[in-house]
Simulated scan of single mutants.
Amino acid sequence: MPQQFIHEIRAFNRFYTNLIGALDYSRHLYLPYTLTESRVLYELAHRDEPEAADLRAELGIDAGYLSRLLAKFEKDGLVERGPSPRDPRRQRITLTPRGREAAELQEERSREAVGVLLSKVPAAERPRLTEAMRTVRTVLADARPTKPAEVRLREPGPGDLGWMVMRNAALYAAEYGWNADYEGLVARIVADFAEDHDPHLERVWIAELDGIPVGSVMCVRDDAPATARLRLLLVEPDARGHGIGDRLVSAVIAFAREQGYRELVLWTNDVLDAARRIYQRHGFVLTAEKPHRSFGRDLVGQDWRLSLHAEPA
């Protein structure tokens, strides 16, 4: 690496650190909180339903340190902690009125400090300054190594079947406006599996992304001889784009073929475009369509079928 590049970057760091000190950031901007505590307050105030796992990933904070920091905030009456409605195993952090007031005070101090800095820069130079800062941020962000997302399929553990019911109901209500009738259907399907299934012929998969449950699918016996049925394919919206749906469907197909099923069938609705594209990519063929009124909506139900005689292309 050319030494002049390293020298210039280190010189800039020293200059900017001194500049921040000249603005007295360390003595009045963050007090009574440290820089890290102030950054966490900022993130809590600018996220919808923030969770501890997301803060750790975004800020690169050690889990133990973040836990102690949040415990301090909770003791000071700044936050409340509880299970996430999305996944009870995750922790949701909510700012209290006192915590929001503290975050707003930090925000006001920050704006004032930057205002003082800009007041010393001629007006004609301010666009050049901000553009240069944007360039630095963009170039370094592009150069920052990113860890590829880790996708893992596993068998369900305690609470996962209940999570499937909850997330199916919440997601389809949010995305398609389906009512509680759909939740009732999913609950019955999951309950039937939990109470009576053959582990050699039926199975559920939970998909994790970086250790967090984000998807699921089920393979069960159908009424027709030598036929398996794919049910309850689900991928969380913020986990889409990682091929999780394809991984789940591939797992069902491989399992059904290994267990000696001759056909794999499924029922879906025409509004589920993304799922339909996944089924088509894996060779499923549409065999029937029928309009129906279900879940509070007018829908078109679809039956899809995949022959398991031949190996997939």
Rank of each mutant, 00 (worst) to 15 (best):
A254W: 05
A169W: 08
L95S: 02
S216E: 05
D298S: 14
D76I: 00
A194G: 02
G60Q: 01
D54Y: 06
H28Q: 12
Q106N: 14
V190N: 04
F15W: 14
T227S: 05
D76W: 04
E108K: 14
D87H: 08
L70M: 10
R281I: 05
N13C: 09
L264W: 02
V204K: 03
D196H: 13
Y16I: 13
A63M: 09
V151R: 05
T287R: 15
D62T: 02
E104C: 06
A310S: 13
P148Q: 05
V186G: 02
L248F: 04
N13V: 11
T96A: 04
R92M: 11
L201W: 12
I20S: 07
Y42G: 00
K75Y: 09
Y25F: 15
V265K: 11
L209M: 13
A113M: 14
Y279I: 07
L69C: 09
G260Q: 08
V79K: 00
H200E: 15
Q259K: 15
E74A: 14
V165H: 04
N269M: 15
V190D: 03
P213R: 05
A124L: 13
T268V: 06
V40C: 01
R167Y: 00
L153P: 11
R281E: 03
A275L: 08
Q91W: 00
L55C: 03
H282P: 02
L19V: 06
V252T: 11
P148N: 07
E150P: 08
A310V: 11
R68C: 05
T17G: 14
A123L: 13
H309M: 10
A194R: 15
A174L: 07
F284A: 05
K120Y: 11
A288V: 00
P83Q: 12
P312W: 04
L286F: 01
